[in-house]
Amino acid sequence: MTVEPTRRDFLFIATGAVAAVGTAAVVWPLISQMSPDASTLALASTEVDIGAIPVGQIVTIKWRGKPVFIRHRSPKEIDDAAKVDVATLPDPQTDAARVQKPEWLIVVGVCTHLGCIPLGHAGEYDGWFCPCHGSVYDTSGRIRKGPAPRNLAVPQYSFLTAAKVKIG
């Protein structure tokens, strides 16, 4: 025998449903306020003028609180990076997959081992050398020797003009 739902049942369920929605509406802003605010999001992207960077130079800019290396690669550096046998790399990746224009290498300047900032134009491959624990990166920012597990990260970027790049 089925029992008909009463008005009281309806009221209880309806009140409970509204209370649940109301609670969610109250809780959501309390959680959301901890997410990055508008001023932090405004710094999520950085535009950089690269027109004045001569061939061979590495420039370091700050993006999202971290250093980013912008390297205007010479033809020799591009060539060295391209002709490496990818299978021998600890973190296999072709140079082509890491650049949009071959003369511009843009990587996050944080060693993938424990987070130090590697030194440019250093190390056996003339890429970068991390002084903390001896990781060696090539002219494509790929890890070659040392304890770092991954290649230097490539951030999202786009060329607004030939002389201006937007990172992030």
Binding site: P29, L30, S32, Q33, S35, D37, A38, S39, T40
Partner: peptide
């Protein structure tokens, strides 16, 4: 003012 303008839901809080 940053709370009022930039923080998510800051004006309401």
């Amino acid at each position: 003012e940053k709370i009022m303008r930039d923080v998510n839901w800051g004006w309401m809080l």
